[in-house]
């Protein structure tokens, strides 16, 4: 199936979703989901630990299955979709990137905090040399003004990124904030612009549409909303909405709905919804993967997880600082004692 696509969707359920199920994917699950996504015509499927290559750790959660086995499994059933991997410099290294490329991953998404793009130079360059399509992924985009975002995106462009993403890791951006950022990028970079949403404030769809209207052509989605926090823009819904708008994604809507219902739904113990914890993530501007960790810490210290998340937001904690959750929880418990 060759497609004309106006918008290229990357399915992140096999990566970001792993936060929702604590990185517990099995090879069989990945085979089933990746094959169905491939058959539905999804152009890119991301597979990695939720915190990117080499993210399996006590800090973020140990993977049940080695991510390289999962990548290999996804590649084996994807004859039209490209398999993408995420890498956060400081967590993963070029070594894992090379291993993933060797297994057949075709896209490297290199993620940094929105103000720290210069740590990605090495990884973007190596991915390029490996013949991979490259994406610069600016996380927690709400924590910097548009001018700063543009400056950092330009750095990624100069390192060889084919695409740069505005990543709303907390769902703290409102539609107008998204417009402002995408518009500023559109005026300043000549590479593709992408947008990655979360749904903690129920804004994933609205923000994705705002991004598309301003010129973003790469959008992330997660089937059944299966991503960190309340998940991302729900892929099958996004496909339907874009089809109604006359925007081509090249994805078969019915197949997408079917795989959501018949394959992905059963992977989750409970359906994704906007719980009070995920709502607080967006409200306080905190990295979406913190939700489960905060819940555990709150139970351990007998406090309200919302207090932990709001305090983390105040301290301007960035993505990856999961160790701060227990630290702050201990502090709050001490202050209450």
């Amino acid at each position: 199936m060759t497609n004309v696509r106006d918008i290229f969707i990357t399915e992140v359920a096999l990566r970001d979703e792993s936060h929702a199920i604590s990185h517990q994917y099995t090879v069989e699950q990945v085979l089933n989901v990746a094959k169905a996504l491939n058959d539905a015509g999804v152009p890119y499927i991301e597979v990695s630990h939720g915190d990117g290559l080499s993210g399996s750790s006590l800090q973020y959660g140990l993977s049940r299955t080695n991510e390289m086995e999962l990548i290999e499994a996804a590649v084996s059933v994807a004859n039209q979709s490209k398999i993408a991997v995420l890498l956060l410099p400081g967590i993963g290294t070029v070594k894992e990137l090379k291993e993933a490329a060797k297994l057949g991953a075709k896209m490297a998404r290199i993620a940094t905090h929105v103000t720290e793009a210069d740590v990605s130079a090495q990884h973007i360059q190596v991915a390029k040399e490996l013949g991979m399509e490259t994406v610069g992924f600016l996380m927690m985009s709400h924590m910097a003004p548009a001018e700063k975002l543009v400056e950092q995106a330009k750095l990624m462009e100069s390192y060889g990124a084919d695409t740069v993403y505005v990543v709303d890791s907390a769902d703290a951006l409102l539609p107008n904030d998204v417009r402002e950022r995408i518009r500023a990028l559109k005026q300043s970079v000549s590479i593709n612009i992408g947008f990655h949403a979360h749904n903690n404030l129920s804004l994933a769809m609205a923000n994705s549409l705002a991004a598309i209207e301003e010129g973003a052509t790469r959008i992330d989605g997660s089937v059944r909303c299966l991503g960190a926090g309340a998940g991302n823009t729900q892929t099958e819904v996004l496909v339907a909405v874009l089809e109604r708008m006359g925007i081509k994604t090249g994805i078969d809507l019915y197949k997408m709905m079917d795989l959501a219902e018949e394959i992905v739904a059963s992977i989750l113990q409970t359906p994704q919804e906007i719980t009070r914890d995920s709502l607080v993530l967006g409200y306080a501007g905190v990295y979406s993967s913190f939700a489960l960790h905060a819940k555990r810490a709150a139970a351990k210290f007998g406090i309200d997880s919302r207090d932990i998340l709001v305090e983390l937001g105040k301290r301007k904690v960035v993505g990856g600082q999961e160790d701060m959750i227990v630290d702050v929880a201990a502090e709050i418990a001490r202050a209450k004692a």
Binding site: Q59, G90, I91, H113, E116, K316, Q321
Partner: peptide, 16 residues
């Protein structure tokens, strides 16, 4: 694992 945090005023180095 290393993480860079841009908060102002700058945070002290912390290690877990």
């Amino acid at each position: 694992i290393i993480i860079l945090n841009p908060a102002e005023p700058p945070i002290l180095m912390r290690d877990t």
